[in-house]
Computed example of a mutant assay.
Amino acid sequence: MGMAIWLKQLVRGGRGMPPAPTGAVLRILRQAVRSDIQLVRWRDDGASETLQTTLMSVERSAVVISRPEASLIRPGDPLEIVVQGGGGRFRGRVRCLGQGQFPSGGLRPLPTLRLSLPSRLEGGERRQSHRVPVGFDLAPTADLRDPESGRTWQADILDISAEGMQLRSREADAGILAGDLLWLDADLPQPAGRLDQPVRVMNVRRESQGERHMLGVVLLESAPELAEFVRRVELRRAARRRSA
Rank of each mutant, 00 (worst) to 15 (best):
S61G: 14
R168C: 08
T54E: 06
W183N: 09
L177E: 13
P147H: 14
A186G: 05
C96W: 06
R27C: 10
L117V: 10
E171S: 08
T22V: 06
I73A: 11
R30L: 05
D187Q: 14
V63D: 05
G23I: 05
Q99V: 08
Q197Y: 13
L115K: 00
F90S: 05
V204M: 04
A70M: 07
A20I: 00
I37Q: 15
P147I: 13
A142M: 03
E80C: 10
L29P: 05
R240S: 07
T53Q: 04
F229A: 14
E234Y: 11
R145F: 11
I65L: 12
P191I: 03
Q166F: 12
R242T: 15
P111K: 08
T22G: 09
L97Q: 03
T54S: 09
M17F: 14
T53R: 09
A172W: 01
E228Q: 12
R241D: 09
A47E: 08
F102Q: 14
Q9R: 02
G123W: 02
R34C: 08
A32N: 03
T141I: 08
D45Y: 03
Q101G: 13
V94C: 15
V82A: 11
Q128I: 09
E228S: 14
Q190T: 09
A227N: 11
G100T: 05
A47H: 13
V25D: 00
R194N: 14
R168N: 09
K8A: 10
S161Q: 06
W6F: 14
A174K: 10
D185T: 13
E125D: 01
R194D: 05
R236T: 15
G85H: 01
Q52C: 14
S149N: 11
G86M: 00
G106T: 11
D143R: 13
L7N: 07
A227G: 15
M17E: 07
E207V: 07
G2V: 01
L167E: 00
E171N: 10
I73L: 13
